[in-house]
């Protein structure tokens, strides 16, 4: 039973899943966290509207994102000449659209939870915007970490975008979820369940790791 664990094909599938999900998560964190800070700090006139739109985007179905991106990168359309369809890049783009709202919305929530006095104190002590942001970031780091973990969980478990934009190409864009869909289609439930277990174990490992980091920092 343990043999399939070392199966090179399975490892490749897990590798593709991890690579795509990690890139998407890192990029989404790089864009979403600053955006969350910006929205939380800025006195924009339409701030409430922006937050409502962000929260709506949290419910965006993956097939809608898949279709949307597809209509831009399909050969006949605007960005067709970039040859993006059925590549890992296309999957990353779709997944970014999926999780940037997740990271942003949860970052806003985490920042808003930080006591307003931190900000005022920092400003009073002569901190500039960047320094103030760093103070808030320090206080909100667990919330932001949780936002990133949630985003990672969303992309590694998603199947619609990967299937539509990646095409489930063996060795290139076949991820754990699209492989599971294929195995189910083929009627081989054992491998599908095995892949599901790998996916759950990975998520568990990620969360345990995060939890331990959090504990280590708090004990300092």
């Amino acid at each position: 039973m343990l043999v399939w664990f070392l199966d090179p094909e399975l490892l490749l599938i897990v590798g593709v899943s991890l690579k795509v999900s990690c890139i998407a998560t890192i990029l989404a964190a790089g864009i979403g966290v600053p955006m969350g800070f910006f929205i939380a700090f800025a006195d924009l006139p339409g701030k409430r509207g922006v937050i409502i739109i962000l929260n709506t985007l949290l419910a965006l179905p993956t097939v809608v994102i898949g279709l949307f991106v597809y209509s831009f990168i399909s050969r006949q359309s605007l960005l067709g000449s970039l040859d993006l369809l059925y590549t890992q890049t296309a999957m990353v783009i779709g997944q970014l659209i999926l999780i940037i709202p997740v990271v942003t919305a949860l970052t806003i929530a985490a920042v808003n939870r930080v006591d307003e006095r931190f900000r005022r104190t920092a400003m009073t002590l002569g901190a500039n915007t960047l320094q103030t942001a760093m103070v808030i970031f320090r206080e909100a780091r667990f919330g932001i970490g949780a936002a990133v973990i949630a985003a990672f969980g969303r992309v590694i478990s998603e199947v619609g975008i990967s299937m539509m934009l990646g095409g489930n190409i063996k060795g290139f864009t076949r991820t754990m979820t699209t492989a599971m869909a294929l195995e189910y289609d083929k009627g081989s439930f054992v491998l599908a369940v095995a892949l599901g277990l790998v996916l759950m174990s990975l998520s568990l490992a990620m969360n345990v790791f995060f939890h331990l980091c959090q504990g280590a920092v708090e004990n300092q």
Partner: peptide, 27 residues
């Protein structure tokens, strides 16, 4: 305030561009 927002915006932009670079390695 305008400068602040501008500065933050620049920061976001730089972060986004820098983090987008590895995407090209997908090819």
């Amino acid at each position: 305030k305008g400068e602040k927002i501008q500065k933050l915006f620049k920061l976001v932009l730089v972060a986004a561009v820098m983090l987008s670079l590895p995407i090209y390695y997908c090819h």
